[in-house]
Design a binder for these strands. Structure first.
Lengths: 108, 108
DNA sequence: GCCATCTATATCACCCAGTGATATAGTATG
DNA sequence: CATACTATATCACTGGGTGATATAGATGGC
């Protein structure tokens, strides 16, 4: 009620996506089209290869320690991502995707 | 080498934080001052109570399902956060903090 | 009123990502 | 060469995250 409200647009996008999700589950639109909606609303998240993750970090010239701090995770975890011993998923993957698309600044 | 480079500022901030971290570990600055640096660089992440998480979601008028999709996590997980059965940590917590500070848009 | 739909809550068992510690090996910088 | 800093490598542990399913409210249309 008091702040500026850039809320409207994203709200609508979400409505659209919800609707599309429903249509998909009912079977009225196929998987391919559903993906388009996902992409449209920037809700799709793709896997991140170890090299990609490292590249993402190196691009900003920061150490694994700082990178871990930014992501609020442990150094050990970042290492395993980069070596390929463990693969990020869920919110971790989402964050990495955001950083890839929007730059490290989104996490600051 | 080719793109625009808004890189410089965040780079410096990170340097500052790294330095502060070192100073803290050595014992030259105390915990309170360290926290200031954390806050300055927006690297601190605070816990999120179940109510807070729910409030965050309700504020945008979205369902748990959509919220989960945005965070790239499962509905089940969001539920447990809101009930208090599990508490988000790591990248999950970071994302929630970002959304709290910058709004849901950061995740889109 | 009743039925259909969406949303939320609840509970289950599984397991792997994430953690913390520690030890070693590179690689700069003085 | 020595002293940092950074990266790689294992290790054992555990709890956060997952997926499925079942129930209960809430909403809305006929």
């Amino acid at each position: 009620m008091s702040m500026t409200k850039p809320k409207q647009r994203s709200r609508i996008l979400k409505e659209v996506h919800e609707m599309a999700t429903d249509l998909y589950e009912i079977g009225l639109i196929d998987k391919r089209r559903m993906r388009e909606y996902d992409a449209l609303c920037h809700l799709d998240v793709h896997e991140m290869s170890p090299r990609k993750i490292r590249a993402l970090r190196k691009k900003e010239n920061i150490s694994q320690a700082v990178f871990a701090a930014i992501l609020n995770t442990s150094v050990s975890t970042v290492q395993k991502w980069e070596i390929g011993e463990k693969k990020p998923g869920g919110a971790s993957l989402k964050l990495l995707n955001l950083i890839e698309r929007k730059g490290m600044e989104v996490a600051l």
